[in-house]
């Protein structure tokens, strides 16, 4: 008998290609492990929140030499050619170098400016700007409003500055939330053990779905928690993670451990569940064939999570969010005799 040789497919699974095509570039660039906060910032912030509004421009008839002086004095590397808020082109340092090289520095900008412009709209989410910086080699993009008027200019530096500022605000908020004792409050309620970790779950990225649950299981193992308890927690984490991945617009899975309990919380950004009772019943699902082909979508996710948890809470608002919380009580070890 000929020796059996298994078939190994090179590269990603086929379904992943579709997912990658659908996944916004910012999520790809930042990786699946990116903080939800960053992803939310990229969606919440619009180009107009970050762009520079004071734009230094030149008219079409200005010479390249005039443009060169303006670039030098203002220490910038690109100059929109604009009149009455209408954008005609951009003069970059490269155009100046070409002018010096070719000897046409006294000719008008309109003859040598870049006219094939890539522009951003003020109302676009910041994730678009990041995508543009990734896809094109330009260091800055002019920003137009809905009436095609030039209203600003955005560079990578503007994006970085805005993100760093907002991140420091968010991190401060998080620090306050996770270390209440540091703020001088709730000292009497401080538990001895406290551990919190959160994982971002990206919509439709089934190649990574389960990653958080696998990490949770490994983390609990390191803490020497009872094996059957670990398995129950891991099952709930896995089902909830898959749920966020296949049914929601994306969200986050949170692990919280203290002296008394392990909590798994799954929060997503919608679309929400209209009939929670129906959704929690065995065998009811809104999953499609693709999800079924991946081994899920039999309508067991919520009921399985409920089955393994000591306490199960769910809240949802259609169009907004779903939050599922599974609480697992940690059995108290027998108290050693005192004295």
């Amino acid at each position: 008998m000929a020796e059996y040789s298994p078939v190994i497919l090179k590269g990603q699974q086929t379904s992943d290609d579709e997912i990658l095509a659908k996944t916004p570039l910012d999520e790809k660039a930042l990786g699946g492990d990116s903080s939800v906060i960053i992803m939310e910032l990229l969606q919440r912030f619009k180009v107009r929140d970050v762009m520079k509004r004071q734009i230094i421009c030149v008219p079409r008839k200005a010479t390249l030499r005039e443009a060169q002086h303006i670039l030098k004095e203002n220490r910038i590397s690109g100059l929109p050619v604009s009149e009455n808020d209408r954008l005609y082109g951009i003069i970059s340092v490269n155009d100046i170098i070409n002018g010096l090289d070719g000897g046409w520095m006294d000719e008008p900008c309109e003859a040598h400016m870049s006219k094939n412009l890539v522009v951003l709209e003020a109302g676009m989410p910041l994730s678009f700007a990041l995508r543009y910086f990734n896809n094109y080699t330009y260091g800055r993009f002019p920003v137009l409003d809905a009436n095609r008027k030039l209203v600003g200019i955005i560079s990578q530096r503007d994006v970085m500055r805005a993100l760093l500022y907002e991140l420091s605000v968010e991190i401060r908020k998080l620090e306050r939330k996770t270390r209440p004792e540091a703020e001088g409050g709730g000292a009497s309620e401080t538990k001895k053990n406290f551990f919190r970790k959160e994982w971002a779950v990206v919509h439709n990225d089934l190649s990574r779905a389960g990653h958080a649950a696998n990490s949770i299981k490994s983390l609990l193992r390191e803490r020497k928690i009872d094996r059957s308890l670990i398995r129950r927690v891991a099952v709930a984490a896995y089902e909830l993670e898959i749920n966020i991945c296949i049914h929601s617009h994306g969200g986050v899975l949170v692990l919280l451990i203290d002296d008394d309990a392990i909590r798994i919380t799954a929060k997503d950004r919608g679309p929400g569940i209209a009939d929670i009772e129906w959704a929690c019943r065995d065998g009811t699902s809104t999953a499609n064939d693709w999800i079924r082909s991946m081994g899920f979508g039999a309508g067991m996710g919520l009921s399985n999570s409920k089955r393994v948890a000591d306490t199960f809470n769910i809240a949802s608002e259609v169009g907004k969010y779903t939050i599922v919380e599974c609480i697992f009580d940690i059995p108290k070890a027998a108290e050693p005799p005192q004295g």
Binding site: P6, V7, Q13, G210, N214, K217, R227, V235, F296
Partner: peptide, 24 residues
């Protein structure tokens, strides 16, 4: 991947893919 991740969650000792299905 999900078959493997599921196996890890339930502490399986191994996974067999039958019918000579291609593996990624």
């Amino acid at each position: 991947d999900q078959a493997i991740r599921t196996a890890h969650i339930v502490g399986a000792m191994g996974v067999v893919i039958h019918n000579a299905k291609p593996l990624s």
